[in-house]
Write a protein that binds this DNA or RNA. Structure first.
Length: 104
DNA sequence: GCAGTGACTAGTA
DNA sequence: ATACTAGCCACTG
């Protein structure tokens, strides 16, 4: 990996249990970089496809998929989450019951 | 070293 | 409810 920060982020993402999701902001806090949710997303973008990091369990603060540059991967993410039993609402948001750390 | 970019977020209108 | 703005800071060229 390019940096220790990435390692830390990946390690936290690996801690997300099966069938649960977490937000970029929450992961940023756990990684010791509160407010830097962008770097979490950037780390996910730099993540290789053959990685064992469950990147699909990371979503934005709205509980929705955020991938901008390549919408193709957003479809994959939705598919993977669906395969884990994660349910989506009408708006495409993930139900709050699936969030690992709820902000309330 | 400087400028542009971005899988974000919170605030404001 | 949506749309736009500013702040944020690691990465890239």
């Amino acid at each position: 990996m390019r940096s220790i920060l990435y390692q830390k982020i990946y390690n936290i993402v690996k801690h997300i249990p099966f069938g649960h999701v977490a937000t970029y902001g929450q992961i940023a806090v756990l990684a010791g970089i509160p407010g830097n949710a962008r770097q979490v997303g950037y780390a996910m973008h730099a993540l290789p496809d053959d990685s064992d990091v469950p990147w699909h369990r990371v979503v934005n603060a709205r509980g929705e998929i955020s991938i901008r540059s390549d919408p193709f991967y957003a479809n994959i993410q939705r598919h993977l989450l669906n395969a884990e039993g994660v349910t989506f609402n009408k708006n495409g948001r993930i139900s709050l019951e699936h969030f690992l750390w709820q902000t309330e």
